[in-house]
Design a protein around this nucleic acid. Structure first.
Lengths: 339, 339
DNA sequence: AAGGATACCGGTAACGTTACCGGTAATGGT
DNA sequence: ACCATTACCGGTAACGTTACCGGTATCCTT
């Protein structure tokens, strides 16, 4: 077994086996009409018999068209990434394109801009017709093929991008909590260098200000969007002399950390502590109690990105370079009014 | 803005800008030692300035080595796939290789063998040095580069593969339930054409047989590993004249469907119905009550696959072509003894 | 000082494919 | 019967890169 070191078959092998020239095989492969029906059949049969598939590399190099869209994301297995992937996958299925996801598996938090542009050029102009990048630090890429950024870390990116209304979503969450009577509201933020985190903090502060509640430094924790860090932050908040009656978590994974810490301290959610998250991940429904959270339609961002990149690939112009997605509070069972 | 239709830069541009030949630039790129320190520096600087990245396609075509590993999976966003991805990602990060995930976004359940081999040849021999395929139907690929299959749908695949002990895991689950006193145990299977499903059914039947419990056709439902179908199957089981006191779900997503149906019928888990799953997905901890399930170490399968493919790429031989992973029952809160 | 070794670099060919051009045979029109 | 058109197909060059060979200038050795 496993003696299949039979050298990979090329278009030349197919041509030889079918008794035609490589040009003709190429024409068959690309469904050009300048080939006799009989010849077409014969070549197709040989292709099937030999199990031939054309080299994506060679094809892309010569014809400048691969029908493949690239996707670059820092960590493919993170819940956020998975949600994006779902949307992209759905859109790809309905398109004529295939998808290649590229990652170096590096889950170090701070991918450098240089590395990102490296990845982009690596794919673009060789094996992909266009690239979608997720939460990039860089937004200026030197490449011929089009690029679309999802949630870029740049207030004014110079490539087409999709962003969600982070401040507005946070504001909705705050208004909801304040409407329930909460006045001591803790906030556990994401990594502060991320634009999304600073925009959500903005919403938190604006929400307080609009209600005339003074900003209290002690109620702010700087997390990193991970559950474990959020657990620690929550413990710090809950052991304050005057602990918060509600916590606004900057994303759902952070909210999970809040749940964990609350359970460890025998603090009941929502009776003794209200919690609001951000993202509306699939998992948030399964939490007990089900998490109230801000939906930022992550999957939609993915599918819209595909639509945009396809337009760009086909030389069309976009209606808008900056596609904003409206966030929306989803009320479940993790909050209770505070009297 | 967005006038970056500056034609992609090639090694020739770099060579011209640095005042050297393309050969020298190539040597710098590949860290060959036949280049003066001063020249090396200058070329590196030009590369950085121009933001040049070599074309993966051209490189792979010429040098037969790309340092990229391919991964082919039917649905990247499915929970199972995500778990595999996690393991693969972890292992990739510690290796010298990058990862490309290929999908056509087709979530149709039955990908054809032809399509699979097409994908494999597409990647292999052009842009990847080796490919990992997840739950392939085909296991005989005509390609020069190595292949490793995860959970192949073939009892005796003729390529190196990683499989988990499905029957044994199911047996553990059954012994546990029977040990708790259950005798009417329902089983919701996955798609019957999958090897994993038939092996788990085998374990279910063997478990019954060992305990002297007669097999009852009515307690078997054929699902498709999805939550929605499982919901429907569960309703059928629970409205039987003599409904099961426990349900063994063929995977965790199926178990979630059982939870949903139970909730709709006001059937309490575990008081009135015990549930065991299979997979031990991340989500299973968040379920309420936490799901007792068979861990099949999906992530480990991914990282082991990377180890295997790297060995094969480097011409080493594997200790074993068929790597079996031991499954293990994880007991949580979804089962109770039946008196 | 002459010969040989070494350091460094450029030119050429090839990887597998498609775009383009051109050529042959068959067909149609008069 | 002759020219024009058409249908079909083959040859050649090029995509961007690296392997390989070979060439020049410098250095070392005796």
């Amino acid at each position: 077994m496993m003696e299949q070191i039979r050298k990979a078959i090329t278009i030349h092998d197919v041509a030889a086996a079918a008794g035609v020239s490589v040009s003709t095989v190429s024409r068959v492969l690309n469904d050009k009409d300048d080939v006799a029906a009989e010849t077409y059949e014969r070549v197709q049969q040989v292709i099937a018999e030999l199990g031939y598939a054309s080299s994506l590399a060679a094809r892309g190099m010569r014809s400048r068209r691969t029908n493949v869209i690239g996707l670059i994301m820092p960590d493919v297995a993170a819940p956020y990434s998975v949600a994006v992937l779902q949307g992209i996958n759905r859109a790809i299925a309905q398109s004529d394109y295939d998808l290649i996801v590229y990652t170096n598996g590096d889950v170090r938090k701070n991918a450098s801009a240089a590395q990102e542009s490296y990845f982009v050029s690596l794919l673009n102009g060789s094996i992909t017709d266009g690239v979608i990048v997720v939460t990039p630090v860089a937004t200026n890429f030197s490449t011929a093929a089009p690029i679309v950024a999802i949630d870029p870390n740049n207030e004014s990116p110079d490539c087409p991008a999709i962003i969600s209304t982070n401040r507005d979503g946070a504001l909705q969450a705050m208004n909801y909590l304040i409407g329930l009577g909460h006045r001591r509201i803790g906030f556990i933020n994401g990594r502060s260098e991320l634009v999304s985190a600073s925009r959500r903090l903005r919403g938190y502060r604006d929400g307080l200000a609009a209600a005339g509640i003074p900003f209290n430094e002690n109620l702010i924790e700087i997390g990193d969007y991970t559950t474990e860090t959020a657990r620690i932050c929550t413990h710090r908040l809950l052991q304050l002399d005057d602990p918060p009656t509600a916590i606004f978590a900057a994303n759902d994974q952070t909210a999970m950390g809040v749940y964990q810490a609350a359970q460890e301290r025998k603090v009941l959610i929502p009776e003794e502590l209200s919690v609001v998250g951000f993202d509306n991940l699939r998992e948030s429904v399964f939490l007990n109690p089900a998490l109230t959270t801000v939906d930022q339609f992550i999957s939609e961002m993915g599918s819209i990105a595909v639509e945009m990149i396809v337009k760009l690939i086909n030389g069309k112009t976009l209606e808008t370079d900056l596609h904003k997605i409206q966030t929306q509070l989803v009320i479940r069972d993790s909050c209770k009014s505070f009297v």
